[in-house]
Design a protein around this nucleic acid. Sequence first.
DNA 1: TACCAGGGCCTTT
DNA 2: AAAGGCCATGGT
Length: 278
Amino acid sequence: MPVSYQTELLLPGLSSCFDLAQTLDCGQAFRWRLQPDGSWRGVAHGRLLTLRHSAADILLLGLSPDDYHTVWQRYFDLDRDYPALQAALSVDPALRAAIAYAPGIRVLRQDPWETLCTFIISANNNIPRIKGIVERLCLLLGDPLDDGCHAFPTPAQLAAADEASLSPLRCGYRARYLLDAAEQVARGRLPMAEAAELPTAELRLALQGVLGVGPKVADCVLLFGFGRVECCPMDTWMRKVMATLYPDGLPAQLLPYAGLAQQYLFHYARSHPSLFPA
DNA sequence: TACCAGGGCCTTT
DNA sequence: AAAGGCCATGGT
């Protein structure tokens, strides 16, 4: 019986550039839930984690000692200097306002396979329903973890399913798309490990070879799954942002970080719909 | 280029 | 309680 060395880890002073609600509930990840005690609990990379704010600090609870360096440091993008990034983006007035509104947003670096599936599910859908579908998918096919939680299913686990067996997900026409993704990844036509080495344009094309993956979903996978921070998913909200604030495109000096800029602008627009008319 | 493809969440009445 | 709008789109 292996002993599980559960521990706690304090990230001192990190609350100023890492707000749990802003980061975990802004529509980039779908497996984090606010607990009655104010903490956030979720699963990533097959590991259960609880986080909470404690004064100016972030507290990670219930992780194994090695998991900070092997998993969570990268997942929460903790090597990026967000204060410096935000200062650089703030040369633009609109972006300065968007960052001031939610300075605690970070862009996560999620598992590419899980990101591919969850953003296929996100198409023409809303966040509460996406969360429900993803939860039912994990419960149905993912390996069990503690407390009734489940890992995200592997490509092989999902590829072994069929449309009928996915009906409990109630994801409608997207079931077929999920199965196509699983088959392409499981059969090695879209190898996720090797994909990480591809240039962005090439990787985008490969992703769009999956049913249900168009330009917007592909860019979400590139940004949130493959850490390609120059990719800027253009959804209905970002189209409104561009039409209202940047009719001639984003300022050129921001393009290398367009995806990060997008996350602040997207959240700001969603929170102030009247400022961004259709 | 339209239009169609589950289903449910949320707001309004 | 019922109704209708809406939804981080993509395929045909």
